[in-house]
Design a protein around this nucleic acid. Structure first.
Length: 492
RNA sequence: GGGCCCGUAGCUCAGCUCGGUAGAGCAGGCGGCUCUUAACCGCAAGGUCAGGGGUUCGAAUCCCCUCGGGCCCGCCA
């Protein structure tokens, strides 16, 4: 750290010198600024060495990334969100004193503004022939090395801003994320859904089996839990008559963190009255197709993204949960097996889940082992055994099954949907049997939700998916931390 | 919870096997250069080798512990 101080001291000395000369190193604004893209465009009609005809000067602003000094000429690279632009500084244009002053005072990392004329260098590089410069914010800390950038994974996550400022690829990735999230909203808006906001702070965290984060309200003098899903409040809204609703925001699970799980993640859920899981499947297929096309549009020429996004284009393979499992494992009549038999089968494939786990858990483990590894693109798995799913409606024609589909991506689960259970008595019975089965606090009994169903939940379908995982899939990024701007990391 | 790997200058990395005064490039300082783009050339400077303990005449290097991170497995949706 002593050395960092030396480097910072050099830069702070420049700030002090600047102030001593009566100049402001952190001015308030830089009006009439154009993206550097405009200069690159203006240069397209120019020949190497040619300067644009006299016109009002262009003003650009961004971060100074590099300076190549050549005696009485200097080149500098300025980056803004639209890209990189070379600045051409000449004694002839700036005058001897200012020219030398600027080169002495500027460092890579500084935020500067420049005003000048588009010009193409003799070597053909689109540039701005600078008439005047403005320091907009002095960087007293040096940026990472210009060629390799910030490589250390931990540093990239802890100080994402440094990752972003030194890597246009990182900026592009997160910009793409935002545009794809916007596309998800647009798709459901266009389909007539209302975006709503329901509480993150709740007294009962329900709708999924996961450990919640627990916190306190001083005013209420009560324990609160951060939500683990958005399912139950959204279905209450269908009871209230909102018919089509979705929410896209954070959910929290107090569980392990790995390449596909983040304790704080972005959840999307939608509920649709008077429709069933077949309708939802069509809706989701349309969403994936649209997102795939948008992704390809946003990342042209990126072969990793191209291969990844194409897995989200139809046709989507469909797999019947039970048929596929029986076929792959060679085990017949799985639905009539006893819990003991299923447990032994699960043990045989290496599962170590507790003995008192449900039939559904053992079936899930078998599916995970025999069927999931065979997926090589986005695949719909349909008609789950009833034992695996507490909130879904029983299948209208297949006994022992529920009307549910899950969407799988090679390597992880993407989405989960069903025709929703709307019978209040059956819902109450299933909540109770879950409590008895697991006997821990991972399942909450939401009495008010059962009461809401008592007022009449229209027949409906719902879906939920992890937005971060969909983005991982579309962009071909193997770690969830690389699609989250500031992933949770242990404090230092 | 189990296993493997990583932490050296602001940044990117050598050095660790086989213990002997801590190295390079970039960035920063000084000097030179009017078309470079990882600019180039010369000079000088820059270190709590993640932290602590041990072995040793001597530890970045060998051993133990701790902290932080990554990957795999398990568990968890």
């Amino acid at each position: 750290m002593a050395e960092e101080n030396r480097l910072e001291q050099d830069r702070k000395a420049k700030v002090a010198r600047w102030r001593a000369e009566g100049k402001e190193p952190y001015p308030w604004s830089f009006p009439d600024r154009s993206p550097t893209e405009r200069v690159r465009e203006a240069c397209r009609t120019l020949k190497p060495g040619e300067e644009a005809p006299p016109a009002p000067p262009v003003r650009v602003a961004g971060r100074l990334m590099a300076v190549r000094q050549h005696g009485r000429t200097a080149f500098a690279d300025l980056e803004d969100l639209s890209g990189s632009l070379q600045l051409l500084l000449r004694v002839d244009e700036l005058g001897e004193g200012p020219y030398n002053g600027w080169l002495a005072d500027l460092d890579p990392g500084d935020i500067i503004g420049a005003e000048g004329t588009p010009i193409v260098s003799r070597r053909g590089e689109p540039s701005l022939l600078v008439r005047s410069l403005t320091l907009l914010a002095k960087a007293v800390r040096p940026p990472p090395e210009k060629f390799h950038g910030l490589q250390d994974v931990e540093e990239r996550l802890r100080r994402r801003y440094v990752d972003l400022l030194s890597s246009s690829e990182a900026r592009a990735r997160f910009r793409t994320r935002t545009l794809l999230v916007r596309e998800i909203r647009r798709y459901f808006d266009d389909a007539g859904f209302l975006e709503v906001e329901t509480p993150v702070l709740t007294s009962v965290a329900g709708g999924a089996a996961a450990a919640p984060f627990v916190t306190r309200s001083n005013y209420l003098d009560a324990e609160l839990r951060l939500r683990i899903s958005i399912e139950l409040p959204l279905k209450r809204l269908l009871v209230g008559g909102l018919e089509r609703v979705y929410e896209l925001s954070k959910a929290f699970r107090n569980e392990d963190l790995d390449s596909i799980h983040s304790p704080e993640f972005t959840e999307f859920e939608a509920y649709w009255a008077y429709a069933d899981y077949h309708d939802m499947r069509h809706l989701m297929e349309g969403l994936f197709e649209r997102l795939a096309h948008r992704t390809l549009e946003l990342c042209p020429g990126d072969s990793v993204v191209e291969a990844a996004a194409k897995r989200f284009l139809p046709p989507f393979p469909t797999v019947d949960f039970v048929d596929a499992l029986e076929e792959r494992s060679g085990i017949p009549d799985l639905l009539s097996k006893s819990r003991e038999e299923l447990r032994e089968l699960a043990r045989a494939v290496g599962s170590t889940v507790p003995d008192n786990s449900s039939n559904g858990t053992f079936l899930d483990k078998l599916f995970e082992h025999y069927v999931e590894p065979t997926f090589d693109r986005v695949t719909f798995v349909v008609d789950y055994p009833a034992a695996t799913t507490p909130l879904a409606k029983r299948h209208r024609s297949k006994p022992g099954r529920v009307e549910r589909f899950e969407v799988f991506h090679p390597g992880f689960e993407l989405a989960n949907a069903y025709t929703e259970l709307n019978d209040p008595d059956e819902q109450e019975a299933r909540f109770r049997s879950q409590l008895g089965e697991r006997g821990d606090d991972r399942y909450a009994f939401d009495e008010d939700y059962v009461s809401a169903l008592g007022y009449g939940l229209p027949p409906c379908t719902g879906v939920g998916f992890g937005v971060d995982r969909v983005l991982m899939g579309l962009l071909g990024i193997p770690s969830i931390k690389e699609v989250i701007l500031f992933p949770l990391i242990r404090s230092r």
